[in-house]
Each structure stands twice: as C-alpha cells, then as structure tokens.
Write a protein that binds this DNA or RNA. Structure first.
Lengths: 140, 140
DNA sequence: TATTGTTATACTCTATAACTATA
DNA sequence: TATAGTTATAGAGTATAACAATA
C-alpha cells in the first residue's frame, strides 16, 4: 500500500469548510448579540418557525430538555415566545413565537444568512457550482 | 428593480453550508465528549499545535482572557497542557502541550476531520470540485 | 406505569471589573 | 503607566436526578 501524503478530496473539502465556518464564528456571535440574543437563544428562535413542543426543541438543539426550560424562560421573559398547553396532550407545551418573536426571528435569519465575503468573492459561476454541489450532498 | 424570488447563489450556498454544519454538531460534541473534552477544550487543543500565549488563545477562541484561565486550568489539571513563563517577557505565559496533550490533540483532529457522509457520498470528481472551490474561496 | 416538562444541583463557558506581577 | 494573566462575581448553557402533572 502506497504512503498517503495527502488526504482524500472529501477530507480536504471538509477541513476547508471547518476553517471557513470557524472564521465566521465572530460574525455570528456578534450578529445575534447585537439583537440581545445568546447563540443558543438565536438557534432556538431559528427552529420555532412552526410551533414545537419543548422536547422537539431539545432534540434539534441537541441538549437536555431541562436546558430548554431555561432557554425558553429567558425568551418568554422578553415576550418573544409563549408556552401553550397542547390540546391533545396537556403534558406537552407548544412553543409559539409572539409577533415580536417572529420579527426578531426574521432579523436573526437576515443576519445569519448573509454569505461571508469569502463566498461572495467567488465568481457567479463558482457560486452556482458550490451551491449545486452542496445541494447534491444534502440530497436536495 | 425586479422582484427577487430567489436568493443569489452565494446566499443559497451559504445556507446549505450552515445546514450541513448544524447537522454535524452532534458528531462533534459526541466525538470530543468521548475523549473527555468539552467543545471549547477541544478547540483550545486544536489551536495549540505550537505554543501560544494565553492572550493569543483568547483571540482565536473569541473569548475573554479570563475564560482562557479556566479552560486551561482544566486541561492543565489533566496533564495535557503546561504554562511556561515566556523568557523575553515574564508576564506572558506560553501554553505548551505535554506528550499526553499532543496525543489527545491528534485524536481530536482525527475525529473532527472525518468528512460527514454527505460529502463522502459525492463522486470523486465532485469532491475535488468542492475542495477546489473552497480553496479558491479561502485564498489558498 | 410511562411520559412531558420542571426543579435542584453541579460544572463549564461567558463577560466585566478589580487585582498582581511584570514591563 | 501600561500590559498579561488571575481572581471574584454573576449570568447562561450543560447534564443528571428527583419531582409534579398528565396520559
């Protein structure tokens, strides 16, 4: 077996994606921080496009349900989210964004979805290639 | 100006990259968790390929220097890192990995750098295209 | 009995401000 | 005086275990 001096292309691509993502961390933290949100609070808003149960939010945030209690407590205290008992199972609480929550969620998305300069600087053709490759990878 | 019903290609590409990254979050948390590391501890190890001052590590981790004290305290207590006064300025402390720290750092990298199934499933040609596009974006 | 969400607890990460030791 | 790092403090995220309400 020949000595491998270079990783395969998927590994190289992944390492570069990690590098790009890490470089955008400050922009994300500052962007949502300007809106008065911690990173996890911003992610919670992101996933509340539709009402979800506490346990569902815990699943997508990859944290214990007991954490979601605290995260939602803080958003609720700001009037961004409401807890409503689910009609079909009163143990379940559905998390619904208020008007203010919807508005802030839109602002979070606007900020997060602005592509980094590194991508914006690619040619239109390269941008489309990248977009299409990622669509293939994600099975879109 | 015409109504834009679709975002430009860079924005679509970025959104897909965010989606792919978020989907890999659990693998990262579990991967470094299996090694007994929190995410931030793992990142700290990542950036200690060469000895660095506390303040330098604070810069790359995007956190206050006072946080680095605690993060490094915990790594040092496990014998992974040593603080050494810098010869030219004894206020500065250089963080050096021990043998155990080097070994664990290598294991962290091995785990993190495995590409996700979504990328591994692309054809070799597509993988190379993706790798090269990202290299262009990053100015490599 | 089992499940959903909360509470209690403890640890980690986070920033700010005050402090120390060097420069 | 200024800077590098620490300590003190407080708030937020994290998991585990015990608990209340509901199924």
């Amino acid at each position: 077996m020949a000595t491998r001096t270079r990783a395969d292309a998927a590994t190289e691509a992944w390492k570069r994606m990690l590098e790009l993502m890490w470089s955008q961390r400050g922009r994300f933290i500052d962007g949502v921080g300007d809106l008065g949100l911690s990173p996890m609070q911003a992610h919670a808003l992101r996933f509340l496009e539709q009402p979800r149960a506490m346990s569902e939010l815990a699943d997508v945030l990859l944290c214990d349900a007991s954490n979601v209690t605290g995260i939602i407590d803080r958003l609720e205290a700001r009037g961004l989210v409401e807890r409503r008992p689910a009609p079909e199972d009163r143990r379940v609480k559905l998390l619904c964004l208020t008007k203010a929550g919807e508005a802030l969620r839109a602002r979070v998305r606007e900020r997060i979805e602005v592509p980094p300069p590194e991508l914006a600087a690619l040619s239109p053709h390269e941008q489309r290639e990248l977009r299409d490759l990622l669509a293939r990878a994600l099975g879109h």
